[in-house]
Design a protein around this nucleic acid. Structure first.
Lengths: 112, 112
DNA sequence: GATTTGTTTAACTATAATGTTAAATATCAA
DNA sequence: TTGATATTTAACATTATAGTTAAACAAATC
């Protein structure tokens, strides 16, 4: 059996698999933004964006906050935890993979 | 505007978003395996596995090869390039995000 | 208070993804 | 050559995803 399947990794990857949502992450990596700004920047309708934001929220890649001025606006902020978890999985996988290569190389050398 | 959307990143993430396919990647990170072994290890039918393998192949996360003994068996091997690209995107995003935090901190300190 | 603004939710439609069963393909073994 | 094995492909049903329009809601402005 391999590593245990991670539900949160699942949701993180599913959220990031959509190009519009990945663009949202790219935008938020530069600065927090309002829902409406994100809709405009991506060329999506506010409704469509709202649903993407819900997916990103439920994967915990983003977090809702407020600007303290106008209570109607939702500011969205990137969260690092899910991306870190994903990076950890990638590194773990790459580590195992390179071990595999090393032992294959050793195997070849032993045969000479 | 943010970073340009990457088609290959799209396919990589979509491929990895499925838990069965991620399990395949986990298994292949340890050693190359036959299609049938992968089906058994994941509890999927050979047909279902075959389709997952096609998705992984088209995202270039895996590569088909042969064992040189029985030409019927397909050995699958992990490829590192797509995972490296994904890791690079993650690191880039995290870098921008931490810059953002730094400038926010600087902003706060300037106000004191 | 009436209306506009920012955003979300609901209902619906269209498209894509996943699994299943059945059939096809290619190769091996007897 | 006949039959078995490893894997893929096709056709189909089911479910999930993403967008649209219309409506809801809450907070701001007039």
């Amino acid at each position: 059996m391999g590593l245990p399947a991670s539900v949160s990794l699942d949701r993180t990857l599913a959220a990031l698999a959509d190009p519009n949502r990945r663009q949202v992450v790219d935008l938020l990596s530069q600065q927090p933004m309002r829902a409406g700004e994100l809709a405009q920047a991506t060329g999506l309708s506010p409704q469509a964006m709202s649903r993407h934001l819900r997916v990103l929220r439920s994967s915990e890649l983003i977090e809702e906050s407020h600007d303290g001025v106008d209570a109607r606006v939702r500011l969205y902020v990137l969260r690092s935890a899910p991306m870190s978890e994903l990076k950890a999985w990638l590194e773990q996988t790459e580590a195992l993979w390179s071990e595999q290569l090393l032992s294959f190389k050793a195997h070849l050398e032993q045969q000479e």
